[in-house]
Structures are given as structure tokens and as C-alpha cells.
Amino acid sequence: MADRVTAEADRLAAALDAAGSGSGGDVVSLQVADVTESGRVNLQLGTGELLLEVPCPDSYRDRAAGDWVAVRMSSRPVVLWRLGDDPADSEADRMQAAAQQAFRDLQVVRAATYGTGAPAGTGWQAASAVYMRKVDGKLELYFQVGDASDPSPGTPAVPTSKPAVINPTASGTWRGGRPDDYASSPVQGDWTGRGNRRGGWFYGSAIQSACAGKTVASMRVAFTRKAGAGSNGKRPLHLYLHSHSSPPSGQLNLGDGPEDLLRLSAGAKGTATLPASWRAALASGSAKGIAIYASGRTDYMAVTGGTLTITFS
């Protein structure tokens, strides 16, 4: 234990020297390599090494890989603020998009009441027929009237379907043609020389059901790389499709791939945008889920997540 603590202290001292800082808490500019699952960041040093899990202030919002930040370097480094342009414009766009989505989620009809007599109040018109339909889960009503003394408001355009968020029903790792019970999450590569591992996420028929009758605009899959598995530096996830709706008892067979759509450092989270051919295969059901596979130690890692977000046009 003492040796490990000493080694970590030596590593941090070397990192501080590489960043041009002593132990007095100098402020330096560093680039974010990744954002971790805890909301902290991994920072890139000039030596190629990383400072892992550096805490950030609450004011540092929308953290992303590639950000430049001011960091107080000491025995416990901390991010002070993000460097760069004023985020007011992008923040306004994001808030407007959120407001539009909230408005869409409201019910179209303000109130619906009934009774045996005519309604009280002014502005009512008698309807000879009532029509209704459901669009994107919301009710639309149309009243046929004999005399439209008060013109009807215009019919709003049919909105784009809300994004579908699909969580995997299962996940796992396979080695040697069978499930690897020693792995608690999907793994790619081989760290011990006992054989390459492949991991997979399974969704049943949920993806195909969510896409039925709709035009898919994009599919994104969120992943988190577990710390303590493989080297700390950024490594690619080698992604594949597979055709299993649930975990197989034998080999996890790989489909199209590999696609290296995402690189993550230890403990980092990120999102991979799937290519058009992959989203078409998943939407049609010819592919069922996502897998990872690598050979050897270089890109060895354990990965969690697998939540799929589908947007429509």
C-alpha cells in the first residue's frame, strides 16, 4: 500500500513539473480529455499523461472533451473555470429548444367538460359533428359547425415525433465462444493472455418498435469506460452490430464493423453517433444491438451504458 501511495505521489509531482507548476497552487491552462461519469474531468498534460477525476465548480456547465480550462495545480488540482467564448448564444439556443419541447408536451385541449344543457358563457358554437385523432400521443379535436361566425384558428403542423430513449435489457461479455461470468460489464480485448473478449448490449425488439412508421434522423449510443481496466489513456471502442435480441448461450456473433466512433480515457463517458447504414439496419430489425471487440492489450477496456437515443425527422 505504501509503495502505491509513493508511486502516485511521484506521478503527481511529475505531472505538476510537466505543467510548469510547483506545489504553490499556480494556475495553468489545460485541455479536457474527457468528462467522467462522476461529472469530473480527465485533463491532458503536455507529457501525454492524464490527470484523472479533477473536480470542477458548479458554474462549469455543459462540460465536454476539448474544452480549455484554468486549473489550480497543487497536491489536489481543481478546475477553476472554462476558457473561451461567452456561451450566452449557445445557452439561449438550448433553452429555446427545451421550451419548444415543453410546449409540445402540453395537451392540445385546454379543458373538456360536458352537461345536459347549453354551456354557460359567451363564444360557444354548436357543432353538428365531432372528430378526433391522436398525433404523437396527443389528442386533436375537430368540430364541424354550420356557421363559423368566429373563424377557427389555424391547424398547427404535425410535430416531429419525440426522441425515443431505449435502455438495454441486458449486457455481457463473451470469451472462447461462451459467456464470460468473470466480467461484470461488456469488455473488449485481452489483458491477461487468456483470450480476447467481446461485449454486447441487447434491446429485444424495442429499437424496431420505436422506429416503426417513422423516419430516423439519428441514433446515438452513450457509453462510460470503467476506471481500473487497461491503461488510463484514450483508447477507441471498436464497435460492431449484432443480430441477437437477447444474450446467447454460445458465441456472441459480430455483424457489421468495426467502427471506431468514440475514444475514451479511464472513467470517461461519451456518445457515439451511429452511421446511416447502422441506424437503417437497427430500425428495420436486421440488426438487434451493439457489440465491442478488440484484440490484445492495447485497446483493452470495460464499458458500461448502452443507452440509445433515436431522433426522427
Score class of each variant (00 low, 15 high):
86 D>P: 13
30 L>N: 03
124 W>K: 03
143 F>Y: 08
145 V>E: 13
150 D>W: 15
57 P>T: 01
215 T>L: 12
302 A>S: 14
15 A>G: 02
58 D>P: 12
212 A>S: 15
7 A>F: 02
123 G>Q: 14
163 P>T: 09
39 G>Y: 03
49 E>N: 09
55 P>A: 03
185 S>K: 06
104 R>Q: 10
199 G>M: 01
125 Q>V: 03
41 V>A: 00
9 A>Q: 14
298 T>Q: 11
17 D>V: 05
198 R>E: 00
265 S>A: 03
201 W>Y: 11
180 D>T: 09
28 V>P: 06
5 V>M: 07
104 R>T: 12
205 S>D: 15
59 S>C: 12
95 M>C: 05
101 Q>S: 15
305 G>S: 03
140 E>N: 06
40 R>F: 07
161 S>H: 10
169 T>K: 14
17 D>G: 08
245 S>M: 04
244 H>F: 03
99 A>Q: 15
33 A>Q: 12
68 W>P: 08
301 M>R: 01
20 G>E: 02
24 G>Y: 11
75 S>Q: 11
92 A>E: 05
196 N>R: 04
90 S>A: 08
261 L>C: 00
118 A>P: 06
123 G>H: 14
251 Q>G: 14
73 M>C: 04
10 D>G: 10
18 A>L: 09
240 Y>P: 11
52 L>N: 08
29 S>G: 07
264 L>G: 01
125 Q>A: 08
163 P>S: 04
34 D>R: 01
128 S>N: 14
141 L>A: 10
132 M>C: 11
22 G>T: 08
109 V>G: 06
144 Q>F: 13
219 M>Y: 11
260 D>L: 02
246 S>C: 04
139 L>Y: 03
151 P>E: 03
101 Q>L: 15
81 W>E: 07
300 Y>K: 04
192 T>Q: 13
225 R>I: 03
287 A>L: 01
203 Y>M: 12
17 D>H: 10
105 D>I: 02
221 V>A: 00
126 A>V: 07
247 P>V: 04
312 F>R: 02
283 A>N: 10
48 G>T: 02
141 L>I: 05
255 G>T: 11
54 V>C: 07
184 S>V: 05
140 E>K: 05
193 G>V: 01
127 A>D: 04
114 Y>E: 08
219 M>P: 10
120 A>Q: 15
136 D>C: 07
287 A>H: 09
313 S>G: 07
196 N>H: 06
281 A>C: 07
153 P>D: 00
194 R>K: 07
114 Y>W: 13
144 Q>Y: 10
181 D>L: 10
248 P>K: 08
9 A>I: 13
102 A>I: 07
144 Q>N: 12
23 S>W: 13
313 S>W: 07
179 P>T: 00
292 I>A: 08
297 R>T: 07
295 S>H: 15
254 L>M: 09
103 F>K: 14
25 G>R: 13
188 Q>E: 10
163 P>W: 09
